[in-house]
Design a protein around this nucleic acid. Sequence first.
DNA 1: GCGGACTGCTTACCT
DNA 2: ACAGGTAAGCAGTCCGCG
Length: 803
Amino acid sequence: MFKAITAWDDKNQIKIVYKDDTDNRKLKTIKNFNWYFALSLNEFKTIPEDVLNDFYQRRVISKLEKKDKYVKIYAYNNWVVKPFIEYLTANNLHPLEADLSIHKRYLVDNHIEIEDNVDVLFFDIETDDSNQGIEIGRDRILSWAAYDNKGNSFFEAGDEREILKKFLLLLQKYDVYCGWNSDGFDVPYIKARLTKLGLSYEWRAKHHVDLMKRCIKLFSYEMEKIGLTGFSLNKVSKVFLNEEKIEHDEGILEMFQNNFELFKKYNLKDAELLYKLDKKLNLIQVMLQQCVWTGTFLNRFYVGELLDNYMLRESKKQGMYLRSKPDRKIMEELEDVRVTGGYVREPNRGLYDNVAIFDFKSLYPSMMISWNIGQDSLNEELSNIGSEHFEHFLKGRKIEEVDFDEWFKFLMKEKKLLDPNDEYTQTANNNFFDKHIDSFIPTLVKNLLDQRKVFKKELAKCQPGTAKYGDLKGKQSVVKEMANSMFGITADKRSRYFNRHIAEGITMTGQFMNKTISAIFEKLDSPVIYGDTDSVFVPVDNDVNIEKLLKTANDKLTDFILKWFKLKMSIVYLEYDKAYRKMIMLDKKRYTGMMKFLNDQDVNELYSKGTEDVKRNTITFAKQKFIDLVKLITDENKTADEIIQWVEDLRAYVLTTEDLQAEDLQIKTTVSKPTYKYKSKPVHVRLAEKLIKEGKMLEAQEGKNSWGNQISYIIVDNDNKDAILADEFNGNWDRKYYWDVQIFAPLERILSTVWPDIDWEKYDFEKAAKKERKRKLEEKRAEKERLKIEKEEKKRQKQQNLL
DNA sequence: GCGGACTGCTTACCT
DNA sequence: ACAGGTAAGCAGTCCGCG
C-alpha cells in the first residue's frame, strides 16, 4: 500500500500524491470512490419511505448499506447530498461524519498512512522596493533563492516571467516549500505576480509551511529564557544558529542594480538560514511525526485537526461513526453558549513563608477517565433534568461563589433522587454518565496516557542526544498534548465533539475537586491560600513533612471520591510540584517570591507569575526595580523603614537622572491586527498608522500564530498624548507619568500587599494630587456647611429674640 | 471645558 | 484554525459643575 503525501477533491474524483517504491513522485486519480455518511439504524427507521424514494429519484442518494447499528448512506458526492442532510437535521436526526470531504473519507476508510519521507525546499524572494511601502503583488519580483533539505542551493534573478517559471519547475521536484513569514509575504506575492503574468500552478499538490509561524508557536512562551526578542529571521537565527543575515546599506533594488554579488549573497543567505534552522531545530520532521501518528497532512497542522483525524481513524477501527461537525446554522445557535471554565480561588493576599504548591496530575484527562465522561456514556435525558436542578440550585449565583459543603450536599441529594440504583457516575454539574459503557473518549484518553507511560519508560533507557531519544521525546510530548487537548475539543463549538454537558462535566468537576482538596487541607490544619484550576497553595511550617502531608491528603481525597461518587476507581490525585521559601501573593494569577523547590531540585531563585517582571510590555527599568524590590523583601528580609527609604531614593532618582536611555524607557506593545480594524486607537496603534503610511511597516496579520508588529515608543507628555518612537528619543520623557504608571504602580501593589497599613499612595503624583483635590473640596464643603449652620443659628436666635 | 464615574477595548498573562 | 479566567491601562462617553 502507498503512503500519501497529499490529497484533494477534484469534483467527484480524488487526487493523491504519493511516492512509489523507487521514491518517484506519482499522482493517482481515484474515479469511482463512493462517498457516504452514516446514520444510526434507529434514526434511519424513522425516515418515511416516500421521502427516501424521493431523494433516490432526485439522484441525491445512490445506495444504502446496513452495517451493525448503522446505515451507510451513499451519495454521488458530499455536496449533492446537502438537501438530504438538511432534511435530516431539520427532523432532529443526526447524520454522522457527513462533513467529511471525499478524500478524507477515502483516507480514513482505507487506513492510508501519511508519508514522512518528503523533499523540502526552503525559499525566499526579493522584490523591487523603490516604491513607498509594501503592497502584496504591486512590484516586480527581482529574484529568488532556495536551499533544499539535502543542502543544494539555487538562485535565479532577472526577467520575472522566466525566473518564476524556473521556480515552479524546481518546485515540481519537492513536496513541501517553506519560507519565513511566507504566509504573509512570499506566497501571496508569488501568486499575485503569477496571476498578473497569466501563469498558473497546481498548488494543491504541495504543502506550504511558514517556519516563522511554527517558531512563534514553539518559542513565544520562553522568549525571555532563550534570549529571543522577536521573530524576525535575523533574531531567531542569531539565537539558534549564532548567524545573521547579510548586512547591506542600500535598498534592495539599488543593491540589485549596483552590487549584484552582495544582492545574490543576501538572498541566498536567507534561504540558507531557513535550511539551517530546520536542520538544527528539526522543525519539519517533528511536525511530520505528528502527522504520521494522527493521519493528518502537513498543511492541516492544527491541534483540532490532528485530534480529529486521529479519532476518526480510531472510531473506524471500532466500527463506529462520530457526529458531524456543526453546520453554519448550528454554529450560529451556539454562538452565545458559554462554557464555564476552571476555578480561580480568591487569594488570601500577603507575605508568606514556606508555601508548598500541589498540582493535580493531568486533572482533566484523569477525571474524564475516572468519571467515564464521553458522548456515548452521557445520559442526556437525565443530565438535562440534572442541569435544570443545578441551575435552580445556583439561583443566579456564579459557581465559584458556592460554598463547598452546600454544593456537596446538593449533589448527594440529587444522586439519591436521580440515580437511586447507582447506574451512573455523577459529575459536579449534576450530569450523569453510564458506568457500564466503555466510552470512546475516556478509553482513548486512557490509551494516550498509557502510551505516554510506555514512551517515558523507554526514554529512561535511552541516552540523551541520540536519535532514538529525540524521537521518543517527540512522541511522548505529542501524546501528552493530545490527551490534554481532548477537553478542549469538547468545549470547541466548531468541533464534532462539542457538548456543553461534557465540557462542563469536566470543568465543574475540576472546580469541585479543587474545593474538595481545599476542604481536606483545611481539616488537616493547613489552610489553602490560593488555587487556580488544578493547583493549590498551602503554607506549611518548617518542620512539616510535605510528602507525608501530601500522602494523607491524597488518601483522604481518594476515599472521598470513591465513597461519595461511587466510582469504580479514581486516578485523580495531587503531586508536590514546587515550594516557595518566601512568597508574595498579590492577586489572582499574580504572585512572586523566592522558590526553594522546583523541578525536583532544591533551588533559591526568583519565580514570578503574571507580575510585571514577566510581562513583555513592562519597561526594562521597571522590571529591574520590581525584581530588586521583591528580592529585598523575600530574600533579604528588609524592614518597612528600609523599604520606605529605598522608595524615596528611587523616586528622587527617577525625577532627576540623566542616565536613563531609550532602551530603559521604551514601552513595547504589539499591534495585533490591521490598524483599520481597531475600534479605539491606543498610542501604539496611532504610531503604527504613521509607520505604515511612511512605508516602514506592513499591516499586521490577524491570528493566533502571527506575532504582529511590536511598536517601541516613549511617552513624552502623557497629558497631551504626546508619544514618539523609541528610535526618535531625544532625552525628553514624562518623568511623572513614568514614575506613576510604569515604575511605581507595580511596586505599589507589592508594597501595599506586604504592608497594607502604610500609606504608599502618597508617593504617586497623580493619586496624591487627586487626594489633595478631594481634601480641599471636602474642606470647602465643610466650611460651607458650617456657615450655613451658623446662619440658621443666627436666624433662630433672631426669631427667639422677637418672641 | 474639565474631571469623575463608568463601560468597553486591548494586551498580556495563567491554567 | 482546542478552552476559559483575570488584571491593568487606556479610549471613549456621559454627565454634572461652574
